[in-house]
Design a binder for these strands. Structure first.
Lengths: 203, 203
DNA sequence: TCCATTACCTACAGCCTTTAGGTAGATGCC
DNA sequence: GGCATCTACCTAAAGGCTGTAGGTAATGGA
């Protein structure tokens, strides 16, 4: 009987495609074996198990997101770069919902450090350079941008914005515009703590 | 043999506690049956199955989040209310990681509409009233706030901010401050579209 | 052509879900 | 108190996914 030509790479890509088509929860070794017309046990020669497979899909997604965003912001700066970065991130999530869901899987610190998520973080930091934030503020700003992108896309994927007006598209542009405004007006006052609330002077 | 006194309510609460202690993926009918020293099949008298159980945990979480945030913002306005809302949301997620994960499960539009997530949305809209946004902007702002809260907490729970400086706590306060800045400087210019980029006039 | 490698197999065991149909404890009515 | 009725919980069984152990056959280099 002929061989199916399985490799870790091939399986990971097929799993990612399966996730995009049928949801991340449909990514099982059984389903994958069915797709290649192979017995489940055979897959263990290439991946360490179901969790390992999903982890590999997550890593692939992080790499693709880093590539897509890097290409999108090339040659741009400031507000335009922010929109390009954000749109590239969201577009990836819309075209590849399964990969996108995989990219939200919890990673160990080691896995996170080894993933291309750090590339996207560095790219985000570079994109924000034009806003003139200092080093400490840049870290916070990168995390804020990440939270907005991640949060919006995730809520949108969960159907949170469906069937209510206005459409998600409009809110997306408004959110990025607001993010731009926040970056331009980045608060430089000493941070308030619960024990030491800032005075309500500016509102 | 004595009865265990199971009800849908009791099971949902136990499942939520189990989720907080051992992770949402540990919430199985088998584990729950073990916890009550009961056979798995018995649970089907109270919940429709594993998915139904997790959905009920999600609904419970949405209700608790709505309650916690409502209590937190009571009597506050503007920036202080925003911080109180955000902190209540994040605190709930930190104390109840499993419930919090359940609250991020995708819901159908019907389920979403029936959940107390809409209460939290309305509360958020009311909290933002002090910023003087018009009706359309308020919808976008509510979605932005939701995205930031959801996104940050979700990234934090995934360990995205672990083992890097500064700590998540500091970024959290910075993010809410930035959100406050964005709301105070909410962009009122006509929204740019990809086909019609806004002029770079304000940067 | 032979041999080492490895891609894929069968067989099995364990856990989770779900359905079907049965038994015993609680409840309410007289 | 006795009895019918409900229902909480049961046994039994089937099906799917994961994972391990050990076997067979295709492949490719010497």
């Amino acid at each position: 009987m002929p061989r199916a030509g399985l490799t870790t790479e091939v399986l990971t890509r097929a799993a990612a495609d399966l996730a995009d088509e049928a949801g991340l929860e449909a990514v099982t070794l059984s389903a994958l074996a069915r797709r290649f017309d192979v017995k489940v046990a055979s897959l263990y020669a290439h991946v360490a198990g179901a969790d390992d497979l999903r982890l590999r899909v997550a890593m692939l997604a992080h790499t693709e997101i880093a590539d897509a965003t890097a290409e999108a912001v090339a040659g741009l700066a400031g507000r335009e770069a922010l929109h390009a970065l954000a749109d590239a991130y969201r577009d990836h999530a819309r075209v590849h919902p399964g990969r996108s869901a995989a990219a939200r899987l919890p990673l160990t610190p080691q896995q996170a450090a080894a993933s291309d998520g750090v590339r996207t973080s560095r790219l985000t930091a570079a994109t924000l350079r034009g806003y003139g934030l200092d080093e400490a503020a840049t870290v916070h700003a990168v995390r804020l941008v990440g939270s907005v992108l991640h949060g919006f896309v995730s809520l949108e994927a969960s159907g949170g914005f469906d069937h209510s007006t206005p459409g998600a598209e409009e809110s997306w542009r408004a959110a990025i515009e607001a993010l731009d405004a926040a970056l331009r007006h980045w608060p430089t006052t000493p941070l308030a703590t619960p024990a030491n609330p800032a005075p309500g002077a500016d509102r």
